[in-house]
């Protein structure tokens, strides 16, 4: 069985009647890195919380390694480490004791060597005896990661691991994630940053309004990224695409003023030269032309149905 996590028709209606998850079905494979993308309020945290036991699902089923998350919660939770979105800490605790605490909560006996390695990996070893309230925000986030990994989980949930984190730490985080993946840890992360999903994930899922809109291999999405479009502004409007041009992937705008040609820029030839020749043969002339490339961001926005307005995501990126 290669599916480690199996989510079937999961829904969540909060007590105020708000539907935060709407019939989500998703299989997560062992050893993969899955990035969940989605705008604020999409339901990413709710999805993770339902799997981890923080939120009672109102419908559907989730199993982890074949065990039901409610009936066999001990079995499933032992496998899972969770880094929550919010920085929550026992301010009066030290780094070392809070990490040991989590290991204990997961039913494991002390392992000083393992914890030392973990804290060194996260460059927290020097700070092991510091009180959490004396740490910076980025360090606190690293402590949360150390806690999540303290019981050697097979599955790691990272809810916005790089929110409010500087470039250096973000790269540290990516390195750590790759290292964990080599060990076979399955990682599910949520993010607003498309480049983060591109950098790290094997598969990308897009959530909006509680619905899972798409889950796809990153390579397939990147394939879509290879698509380019050439737009031509015509001197005289056309009524229809001429018969001789039918073999090209052409699209005529409603007013007949622009012609859009889609092609694969990673293919052997783009076909532009031939198209231009064919156009002049049927006497179609254009006053201007430009090319554009679809980005993951565009695919994303298309999916979310935010017409031509990428401000939202751009804001998130800054």
């Amino acid at each position: 069985m290669s599916d480690l996590i199996n989510i079937q028709n999961l829904s969540k209606v909060y007590s105020n009647g708000f539907k935060a998850l709407d019939d989500v079905s998703l299989n997560i494979k062992k050893g993969e890195i899955l990035a969940l993308l989605g705008p604020n309020g999409a339901g990413k945290t709710t999805l993770i919380s339902a799997i981890c036991g923080l939120v009672n699902p109102t419908g559907g089923k989730v199993s982890v390694a074949g065990y039901d998350i409610i009936k066999d919660y001990r079995k499933t939770r032992e496998l899972i480490g969770l880094v929550p979105q919010e920085l929550t800490n026992n301010q009066f605790d030290t780094v070392l004791s809070t990490v040991n605490f989590t290991r204990g909560m997961f039913g494991k006996s002390k392992n000083a060597a393992l914890i030392e390695e973990l804290l060194k990996d996260l460059t927290l070893w020097e700070k092991r005896n510091s009180l959490l309230m004396h740490l910076s925000g980025g360090m606190k986030r690293r402590v949360l990661i150390a806690k999540a990994l303290a019981h050697e989980p097979e599955i790691l949930f990272l809810d916005e691991p790089t929110a409010g984190v500087d470039v250096e730490l973000r790269q540290d985080m990516w390195r750590l994630i790759h290292k964990l993946r080599e060990r076979g840890v399955t990682i599910i992360l949520t993010t607003h940053y498309i480049e983060e999903a591109e950098e790290m994930a094997d598969r990308v899922g897009v959530i909006a309004n509680g619905k899972l809109l798409l889950v796809e291999e990153k390579s397939v999405l990147m394939g879509r990224l290879g698509k380019k479009a050439l737009t031509m502004d015509l001197v005289t409007p056309l009524e229809s695409i001429p018969e001789s041009l039918k073999s090209y992937d052409l699209e005529l705008s409603n007013d007949g003023n622009t012609l859009k040609y889609s092609y694969d820029n990673q293919g052997e030839s783009t076909g532009i030269t031939a198209l231009v020749q064919a156009l002049s043969e049927v006497n179609v002339r254009f006053s201007d032309l430009h090319t554009e490339q679809s980005s993951l961001e565009e695919i994303f926005i298309d999916l979310l149905n935010v017409p031509n307005d990428s401000n939202h995501m751009v804001e998130q990126k800054q």
Binding site: C52, G53, L54, Y73, R74, K75, R77, E78, I80, L82, P84, T88, N89, N90, T102, M105, F106, G107, K147
Partner: peptide
């Protein structure tokens, strides 16, 4: 930090 209690086995 209650999240820790709720997500532990």
């Amino acid at each position: 930090t209650i999240y820790e209690l709720l997500s532990s086995p």
